[in-house]
């Protein structure tokens, strides 16, 4: 690909962090996913070329692992933990409420691209079940009735 694509400039610092080998593939894709909020096609082509991994194998890895998305994600990701503890403490009700409010279910992005809803396999905060994560903000003992507040308060500003 010789096309000058401004989108690719964000890829350079990511590639610079890892050795140009197949073993870096998943790490690079994690960072690409974070930087672009999905794995754009032309970025994957570039990753394949630079890490010397066949494109088919890059696509294979990109579709195998749950952390990666091939379509643009919403500005904020809402993750509903569906670990066992959350499941038996009512994660399903949170999903119902989100579907009601936002018109999008797990794996979907709202029409205005503000939110993407995902279910995650146990984030390990079981003691706080059910857990909802808006952006990077964890909401323990989440209640369907409070979802409006969680969404309006957003996901920023949470120190890790």
């Amino acid at each position: 690909m010789t096309l000058a694509c401004p989108e690719l400039t964000r890829l350079e610092p990511i590639l610079a962090r890892y050795p140009a080998r197949e073993e870096s593939l998943i790490q690079v894709l994690q960072d690409v996913q974070r930087a672009y909020r999905y794995l754009p096609c032309h970025v994957l082509e570039q990753v394949a070329a630079r890490l010397h991994v066949p494109l088919a194998r890059v696509f294979s890895v990109a579709t195998f692992y749950k952390a990666f998305a091939l379509t643009p994600q919403g500005e904020t990701t809402i993750q509903v933990c569906t670990g066992t503890a959350c499941h038996i403490r009512g994660a399903e009700r949170l999903i119902d409420e989100l579907r009601d409010r936002l018109g999008a279910g797990p794996g979907e992005t709202t029409a205005d691209r503000r939110f993407t809803i995902r279910t995650v396999n146990c984030v390990g905060a079981c003691a706080m079940a059910p857990v909802l994560i808006v952006g990077d903000r964890y909401r323990g003992n989440a209640k369907p009735a409070a979802i409006g507040d969680y969404l309006s308060e957003g996901g920023g500003g949470h120190a890790h």
């Binding site: 569906t82 503890a85 959350c86 396999n121 146990c122 390990g124 079981c126």
Partner: peptide, 12 residues
């Protein structure tokens, strides 16, 4: 890779 839903001792 503590993937078991309901387990978090490795995370801790």
């Amino acid at each position: 890779d503590e993937g078991d839903p309901g387990a978090f001792k490795d995370r801790s």
